[in-house]
Write a protein that binds this DNA or RNA. Structure first.
Lengths: 299, 299
DNA sequence: AGAGGTTACGGGCAGCGTAAGGATC
DNA sequence: GATCCTTACGCTGCCCGTAACCTCT
């Protein structure tokens, strides 16, 4: 009955399957099978009901889950308290909103690697909506995304707040005064993909029978949004910080519109429960790093 | 960084040496060396200062000790809560006063083996004084001895209270009325060895200038005391319960003396700290078993 | 010399991955 | 047939015990 078995058990319980747990733990599925079988034999108790499409905890298993999580948490705490930094080991699956990638993510990674050389990251860039789901299903350990976080299973700390600006290439004939929505709608509006907060907010601006049809170009790649805006394909709504360089050398300019854009409040979020000690540490680190101003997007 | 390493660490810390820990854990000394070395490497921290005659905890080591003990306690609790009885595994070093051996110990062992088949015992019969020391130095996990226990590091629960009786062979010319101490001193008094409570109590009876010299035959083996008493070598002071059979068939008889003998209050005692879960369980079991009346000494 | 920890080395076993085998939809 | 867990099997690597070595009293 060693800790690896307990860790495996916790992941199987959370993910609801041996296969997914195997992926998560970088092992093969039979290995997970064997570990659980061993644990069940050691305890003399069946921990999972193997149903056709998923496994579910038995009563005993549910009972064990609490102990196992406390145990893993205690181990993590111990490592942080007693071990040197290099003793903190593991792989963290980190989800990041692209705006963060273009501002301070690399500085965080650098700093993390310096402080905790034995911690590795698996970084996934996705929309906040998707990442929120993935946090809940334990596919991600930690995510930097647009808040606020309503889910009670998740813990979140504020990271940074970026203003969203109307941006266009200077080649577009835009007046110095705030542009009415009707005029704005002459151009496609390029921004984050559908199912994101800014996309929705802009779409809402144009709801109403007297409103013109607006062409929205949702794009999952912020770099592409910038590229398209530089090329004069349309106007865009993106955080001004990620285009600091383009604004400085005049390749892009900010303009005002009839309706201002909402701010983007980024938070670090992670599941409250398991061995989230490392995740919490990285979140703290991210708060520090995100507080420091940064240079803009490097294209 | 597995639990075996932590357990080893805890024992080395408590016993103050690799060699003694090796004995305690049924392993060789190099194995202990290796486990500690591995643990130190994992944590990147030196845990023990190797001094010439003993090892002592470093500051980090002391820090770790708390975590390690909590961890082991949590594991033990988990096993009891979740596992079936057979999952409770381990070897307990049990110290027992001989009176207990002759009354209910075998019933306890039987019952323990029935309830927890994977728990094995190393039983040591010794005097309460010695066992108290051994509890404090963690050489014993649990002991059934004459209380009360004053040491705050030890936890104790009352087990049973036996009256000590003046006993002699019927061949000895003893009057039916209480025997004055002066007359009693004609015979050697056979009882538990020196450094026991009854021995001291009897010795104290004969303190005083007007008191006769008394010959006391301290004996570490209760069975021998009984044998010698049967053979009419002297009178003895032993728990009446252990000679129930001899009393019943008339080979021994109880007589009254000028001074009554103190009772013997037995308790189960164990160290409060480490993974004393099994010890506590056995103590509870012992309370049950000791409550049931028993047949006497089998010679 | 003896007690106690470390280093060297060989063997046994646990745990892993690959691959094949059910079961269920 | 697809999905998911289990079983079979060979291999690797870890951990242990034996034995020799080192150090301090």
């Amino acid at each position: 009955m060693d800790l690896k078995a307990l860790e495996t058990f916790v992941w199987v319980a959370h993910l609801g399957g041996f296969r997914t747990a195997a992926d998560r733990l970088n092992a093969t599925q039979p290995a997970i099978s064997a570990r659980i079988a061993q644990l069940e034999e050691d305890l003399g108790v069946r921990l999972f009901d193997r149903e056709t499409r998923r496994v579910t905890l038995t009563e005993k298993g549910l009972n064990l889950l609490g102990y196992a999580e406390r145990m893993l948490a205690l181990r993590a705490e111990m490592l942080q308290a007693v071990g040197e930094k290099g003793a903190v080991r593991g792989t963290i699956r980190l989800g990041v909103a692209e705006s963060i990638v273009h501002t301070w993510l690399s500085r965080l990674v650098e700093r993390l690697h310096y402080l905790y050389p034995a911690v590795s990251l698996e970084i996934e860039v996705d929309s906040s909506t998707v990442m929120r789901e993935e946090l809940l299903s334990h596919q991600l350990d930690l995510a930097f995304l647009v808040g606020p976080i309503a889910e009670p299973q998740l813990k979140s700390v504020p990271l940074c707040s970026y203003d969203l600006a109307w941006v266009a290439s200077p080649t577009l004939p835009l007046p110095p005064e705030p542009v009415p929505l009707k005029d704005l709608a002459r151009w496609p509006i390029i921004t984050f993909s559908r199912n994101t907060q800014p996309f929705g907010a802009i779409q809402d601006m144009f709801v109403g029978s007297d409103m013109p049809a607006v062409r929205m170009f949702g794009n999952s790649s912020l770099a592409t949004v910038v590229r398209m805006t530089l090329d004069g394909i349309g106007v865009s709504a993106i955080p001004s910080l990620v285009i600091a360089r383009e604004l400085a050398d005049g390749r892009l300019k900010i303009f005002q519109a009839e309706r201002p854009l909402p701010r983007l409040d980024f938070v670090a979020a992670y599941a409250k429960k398991p061995d989230s000690y490392i995740a919490a540490t990285i979140a703290t680190l991210a708060v520090e790093v995100a507080g420091t101003p940064t240079a803009g997007l490097l294209l």
